[in-house]
Amino acid sequence: RELEKFANEFKVRRIKLGYTQTNVGEALAAVHGSEFSQTTICRFENLQLSFKNACKLKAILSKWLEEAE
């Protein structure tokens, strides 16, 4: 439930900031050390990743959002 809420909020905030899914994937290299594909970001936003992978990505995306805003 919390993950679903974060995924929805993330998408809204990403769009408000003017980032595409591809931009986010590339920008994550600075935060995490490796890029993520547009497909991975899309699957996260649509809750199509495994729970374990989504939880890992949530932590990375939270950190990125803090820096982007």
Rank of each mutant, 00 (worst) to 15 (best):
E66I: 09
G33M: 03
N8Y: 12
G33C: 03
K63I: 09
L61N: 02
S34H: 14
K56Q: 12
L47E: 05
K58I: 00
Q21P: 09
V31S: 13
T22P: 06
L47A: 10
A59M: 12
A68G: 04
I15F: 07
V31R: 13
N23I: 06
I15R: 12
E67T: 08
N23V: 10
R43T: 02
K56Y: 08
G25D: 05
L49E: 05
F44L: 03
K5R: 12
R1G: 11
L57S: 06
A30G: 09
E2A: 08
I15K: 13
K63Y: 06
Q21A: 11
A29V: 01
F44S: 00
E26Q: 06
F6H: 04
Q48H: 05
A68C: 03
V31M: 11
V24W: 09
L17Y: 02
A54F: 12
G33N: 06
R43G: 08
L28I: 09
V12I: 13
K58P: 04
R13D: 02
V24L: 08
L3M: 07
L49G: 05
V12H: 14
L17I: 04
E26M: 07
N46C: 03
V12C: 11
I41Q: 03
E45I: 02
L47H: 15
I15G: 08
K58N: 05
I60A: 09
E66S: 09
T40A: 10
A27S: 12
G33V: 03
T39I: 09
T39W: 08
T39S: 12
L3G: 06
R13Q: 10
F51G: 08
G33S: 03
L3T: 02
K16F: 01
F10W: 00
K63D: 14
A68V: 12
E66F: 10
V12M: 13
K11C: 02
F6A: 04
N53K: 15
L17R: 02
N53T: 15
K63L: 09
K5M: 10
S37M: 02
E35S: 13
E2W: 06
K16H: 03
T20H: 00
W64H: 06
S50F: 04
F6S: 00
E9D: 14
F36K: 03
V24M: 02
L28D: 11
C55N: 10
E2K: 07
F10T: 01
N53E: 15
A7E: 10
N53P: 12
V12A: 15
G33P: 08
C42G: 13
A54Q: 07
E9F: 10
C42W: 12
E69A: 07
I41P: 01
I60Q: 06
A7W: 05
L49Q: 03
L65K: 03
I15E: 13
K5Y: 10
A68W: 00
A54W: 09
T39E: 15
F51R: 11
F36M: 09
E9K: 09
A68K: 14
S50M: 03
E69Y: 04
C55L: 15
G18L: 05
E2C: 00
A27V: 05
H32Y: 15
N23K: 12
S62Y: 05
Q21H: 11
K5G: 07
F44H: 06
A30E: 12
E67F: 07
I41C: 07
G25E: 07
E66C: 12
T40G: 06
K11F: 00
K58D: 05
I60T: 06
A68E: 13
E45T: 02
I15C: 09
T20M: 01
Q21W: 05
F10Y: 06
F36L: 08
F10N: 05
V31P: 01
N53M: 14
A59F: 09
L47Y: 07
W64D: 05
E45F: 01
W64G: 06
A7I: 15
A54P: 04
A29P: 01
N23H: 13
S34T: 11
R43C: 06
E35N: 11
T40S: 08
Y19K: 04
L49P: 04
F6C: 00
L17E: 09
L57M: 15
V31N: 08
L28E: 04
N53L: 13
G25Q: 11
N8L: 14
G33Y: 00
R14Q: 03
G18Y: 02
Q21L: 11
C42P: 03
N53S: 14
F6D: 00
W64S: 04
Y19G: 07
E66M: 09
E35K: 10
E35F: 10
E4K: 12
S62N: 07
C55D: 15
A54C: 08
A7G: 01
A29L: 02
F10D: 04
Q48K: 07
F51Y: 14
V31Y: 09
L65N: 00
I60W: 05
R1S: 10
C55F: 13
I60F: 04
G18F: 04
K11L: 00
A29H: 12
K63C: 07
F10I: 00
E67D: 13
Q21D: 04
E35Y: 08
E9T: 08
V31C: 10
L65Y: 02
K56T: 09
R1K: 15
A68R: 10
R14D: 04
N8I: 14
R43V: 00
S62A: 13
K63A: 14
V31G: 08
V12F: 09
F10C: 01
E67L: 05
E45D: 00
C42R: 15
K16W: 02
E67N: 12
K5F: 07
F44I: 02
A59R: 13
L28A: 02
K56F: 06
